[in-house]
Design a protein around this nucleic acid. Structure first.
Lengths: 151, 151
DNA sequence: TATTGTTATACTCTATAACTATA
DNA sequence: TATAGTTATAGAGTATAACAATA
């Protein structure tokens, strides 16, 4: 039986975007797991690698994670010696989350996996097309993500 | 605090695609819920609106849903009088899932919601750009979704 | 009084395994 | 023996509510 002839869902750009998003997520998850990590860990390590000093609440907002989920995530990374909780002297309720040296190493490794996975996934697009796609997605996300903390 | 300056994740096309996918999903879910429906129901109704005669297994594969989840989904739609289970005479283990008249009405309503949501979401792109995006996503998905049943 | 982080608990969703009927 | 559909159950993941420390 051939759906291809009239698969109405495939005519909707929104559905395609939704499905493509799921697919990169799955492929990334597979690649990160194979490397002993996870998509989430990559997101956290990458977020903490920037200059901004992030608290758990900040992470929660930037990555759309429940605060209680962030606790468990940082617990793990702290146990693995990749992240340090440091009290924020300006507001002792908050932490400043910092990558340790081991965390920076872990991040470098996981960034390589990310790059390889992306290159494989977008290989069907020519370099110029990929830039075009990036720009369009950037515009679609502008003001909607990352929310808060930014600006 | 401004992340925008060095938010490394936003430089990855894969992450942008992932996030954009989540965003359309959320906006669609909101819109469908407001209309008394759901993204899933839309997907099912739209899939069954094609010419192919789909079984629950077919649906399960096309929409990446667990077979047990499909049972519950079709139960609901059958109770709502929108879908009929009809034994496949060629293989009495299978059903042929059919939209009823009420199902077609429900689909028409939900397709309008989908169209409106898409137009709002992609409003930032010019018509030509949106076609370009559609074509690129189509190429990225080719052979990866919809899997099975098709071809 | 409000907020950050934490814990314990409840809930939702999905997957697993076992069963019936058909092939 | 294998597959479609069904059911009951277990598990993963997430959200909710209550608490301690700080503002």
């Amino acid at each position: 039986m051939s759906l291809r002839a009239d698969f109405l869902l495939a005519e909707r750009t929104g559905v395609l975007l939704f499905k493509a998003g799921l697919l990169v997520q799955e492929e990334a998850e597979r690649a990160f797991q194979a490397a002993g990590s996870s998509l989430r860990t990559f997101m956290v390590l990458s977020a903490l690698a920037g200059q901004a000093e992030l608290s758990q609440q900040d992470l929660s907002q930037v990555l759309n994670l429940d605060p209680t989920t962030v606790v468990a995530l940082i617990d793990e990374l702290e146990k693995a010696g990749q992240v340090e909780r440091q009290r924020n002297p300006a507001d002792r309720r908050r932490y400043i989350l910092r990558l340790t040296d081991r965390g920076r190493e872990a991040r470098a490794a996981v960034e390589e996996v990310a790059t390889a996975t992306e290159q494989a996934f977008f290989a069907r697009l020519e370099p110029g097309e990929r830039e075009l796609l990036h720009g369009m997605l950037d515009r679609l996300l502008d003001g909607r993500w990352p929310q808060a903390v930014c600006d």
